[in-house]
Every structure is written in structure tokens, then in C-alpha cells.
């Protein structure tokens, strides 16, 4: 656990030393703030004390921003060779993966936490469904965990950050849109499977204020499956090829 934190801390300080963290925070808050307060079905238009518009827009912004965070995680280290240095230290592959995962999740959590003043402002404007808000935040975190898993996996199979970025968007777009489309275009059991795989199904039910263990399990299992896959990819180098 200690080693995981050492790695996470280094990644986090890299985020903040470079401009990545600040750009992410500003753009994320800028975008979601714009749509929550000023444009489209914002608070003033709907006349309701609700920050549902924020969740709806964060749902999309995170889809783009998380791959931008995760793309360099392994691709850059493989490209510069530092991965060799890192993995020959007294850590397991799993420590490294979990450390990087934790760093990304922490940064996303910080970004999301910065939107709490909006919640407080809306609360000041009128009655808010507090349960739904907190569920929404938990939903965002869970969804982020799933995206980070996907992003880390994409980053682990290539040396190129751009490829990693595009690949995680590609995988993400399946969960975000395509599974939903597929679910609507087929019927029967397959439709059920695709519907289950679609992120929106689970995210919507959480933001409505219902935390179902099924939905939690869904997001966590995407994250876990991707992290395990990442570990398998990293362990390729140690396979005995006979």
C-alpha cells in the first residue's frame, strides 16, 4: 500500500508540476460551469434548484478529459524507457498500476470537488434534492474509475500517447454510446446485454438518486477488468516463451 502511494504521489506531483492539472481543472470547471449556469437548459432557464445539468455535462467532459490524463501513464514510460527503471525497483507491476490509477482518480476527484460551490449556490437558491446530488457525485467518481481503467489499459498497449488517447476514446465511445445504439437496434437477450453494458443506463439510475449495488458493481467491474488486463499486458515481458 505504501509503495502504491509513493507512485501515486509522484504522478500527482507530475500533474501539478506540468500544466496538466491546472488545464484540466480550468477547462473542466469552465465547460461544466458554462453549461450549468449560462447556456442550454441551465438553472435559470429551468427555474429549478437542481444541478442535474452539471452531471449531464460532466458525463461528457470526463469522457474526453480522462483519456488525456491516462494516455501518458504507460505509453510515455515505455517510449522513454523509464518503465524499465520503474519495474526493476522493489515494486510489483500491480503496485505501479494501482498507483497510477489512484493518482488519476485523485486528480479527477479534486476537479469534481471544485464544483461543490455550485451545489452550495443552488442550495442557497432553492430546495435541492440532496440525495440525488450526492448520488450524482458518487456516480461521477464511479464512472471516472471505469474510464481511468480503460485509459490505463489503452496506454499500456502502445508506446504512443496519441494512440493511447484515441484508443481509450474508442473503447469509451462503445460504453458511452454504441452499446446503447446496439441495444435499441437488436431485440431479446442481446438487447438486454447491450443495455446492461451501456454506461448511460447505470449513470442515469445513480443520478436519479438511487445507488443500486448492481450499478456500483458495473462501474467497478469495468475498472477491475481493465486493470487486470493492464497487468496482463505488462507481464507479457516476463512470460516464458518456449
Amino acid at each position: 500500500m505504501n509503495k502504491i502511494w509513493v507512485i501515486a504521489k509522484r504522478e500527482l506531483s507530475t500533474f501539478f508540476d506540468s500544466l496538466i492539472a491546472y488545464i484540466l481543472l480550468i477547462v473542466f470547471l469552465g465547460f461544466s460551469g458554462f453549461f450549468t449556469w449560462l447556456y442550454g437548459s441551465d438553472v435559470f432557464l429551468t427555474g429549478q434548484a437542481s444541478i442535474q445539468p452539471f452531471f449531464a455535462i460532466a458525463y461528457w467532459t470526463l469522457f474526453f478529459f480522462i483519456p488525456a490524463l491516462t494516455m501518458k501513464m504507460f505509453a510515455e514510460e515505455k517510449n522513454t524507457g523509464t518503465i524499465e527503471l520503474l519495474l526493476t525497483k522493489a515494486v510489483t507491476d500491480r503496485d505501479v498500476i494501482l498507483g497510477k490509477f489512484l493518482a488519476c482518480l485523485t486528480l479527477v476527484a479534486i476537479a469534481i470537488a471544485f464544483s461543490l460551490p455550485w451545489y452550495l449556490t443552488v442550495w442557497w437558491l432553492g430546495p435541492v434534492d440532496h440525495g440525488a446530488v450526492w448520488c450524482g457525485y458518487i456516480g461521477l467518481l464511479l464512472m471516472s474509475a471505469a474510464y481511468i481503467g480503460i485509459g490505463l489499459f489503452a496506454s499500456s498497449i502502445t508506446n504512443s500517447q496519441i494512440v493511447a488517447f484515441l484508443l481509450s476514446l474508442l473503447i469509451g465511445v462503445f460504453f458511452l454510446i454504441l452499446f446503447q445504439v446496439l441495444a435499441n437496434s437488436v431485440s431479446g437477450f442481446l438487447s438486454y446485454v447491450f443495455d446492461y453494458l451501456s454506461i448511460s443506463t447505470h449513470f442515469e439510475s445513480i443520478t436519479r438518486g438511487v445507488i443500486d449495488s448492481k450499478d456500483v458493481f458495473y462501474f467497478l467491474s469495468i475498472a477491475v477488468v481493465c486493470l487486470v488486463a493492464t497487468e496482463v499486458v505488462l507481464s507479457q515481458r516476463r512470460l516464458l516463451d518456449r
Partner: peptide, 20 residues
């Protein structure tokens, strides 16, 4: 795991985190 603690390694081309 045990061995890695006891080995110091300088890889070829000396890869380092240049931003640190």
C-alpha cells in the same frame, strides 16, 4: 520481489523522469 530490493540498476541510455 526480494531480489529487486538488493539490486541497483542503471539501464541502457539511462532513462529518467526529466521533469523531476
Amino acid at each position: 520481489e526480494t531480489l529487486k530490493k538488493r539490486i541497483g540498476y542503471l539501464p541502457e541510455n539511462n532513462p529518467l523522469y526529466l521533469d523531476m
